[in-house]
Amino acid sequence: MPALKIEHLAKTYPRKRPLFGAAPPGVRAVRPMSFQVETGETLGVVGESGCGKSTLARMLVGLLEPTEGTIEIEGKALGTADPSEFGKLIQYVFQDPQSSLNPRKTIRQVMEAPLKRLHGMAKPARNRRIAEIFASVKLREEFLDRYPHEFSGGQAQRIGIARALAASPRIIILDEPVSALDVSVQAQVLNLLADLKTRFGLTYLFITHDLAVVEAVSERIVVLYFGAVVEIGRADRIFANPRHPYTGLLAESAPVVGRSLAAPEQKGIELPDPLNPPPGCAFAGRCPRATDLCRTREPELKQMGEDQLAACHYPLEN
């Protein structure tokens, strides 16, 4: 049984209705998508800004009501968006560690909230549990009575992770958890996350725009473009052997030591406009392989090779 299974999950943001006339069609931030995450797996999610990564993540934790589709956690379907119901099963670690902590609450107050509200623990049990979690994220207990501004980014992110762990969830959504951190600290936090995963048998959904990071931590990777899944595949293979032209473009664009600088794309290419989405494949405007078929019919996600799926009419060869 997969830890997380989503089916046809989609979100359309309504647009303002003009004074006269009908409301314009909404912005399809996430188009119907389906995938699953196995227990103990880390699934990486990559894509450009605005491709729907955060919308997807917020639906998964119940902060946002999906327009259609279902979310199943360990075989149990979750109903309407209610963060306190979701909270016990799935938690979130935020991108900006400082902004995810209330500046006027001590760390102890922050840590106690999920224990009290989600699990109804009494004071002594809470203290024991907090001590346990702090030890596992390698934070000193004396930090508990301090305020967030006294912590560095790396420490604040550990506190954010500790708070997520306090809810004893099965799955943690990591939304760009290290992009606000320094490289030397980034590695500390990534290693801690890997350690916690084996220790508590967690499942991760790791969202980022850093290809090297996502490759280093994930088993499988989902590539999003313009609100849709364009490719899913094994982390160790997907960038070396992309099937979708967009994945290929990403891999070529990443700055890599020892590769000379060359813009993989021509200038003056049209990027798709969310307010006026193109018919057919959203990548067609940037794709050197595009034909009339691509511009009229949206490609579906198809099995390509053993454990790779891509949504493309003319996929790249291995």
Binding site: S152, G154, V183, S184, V185, Q186, A187, Q188, L190, N191, A194, L211, A212, V213, E215, A216, V217, S218, E219, A235, D236, F239, A240, A251, A254, V256, V257
Partner: peptide
Amino acid sequence: LIACVPELGGGRRELAAIPGL
């Protein structure tokens, strides 16, 4: 510092970190 930075194509791995601040 160079060792801390994951590089594309390096595969899944433990990253080297610099302890302390």
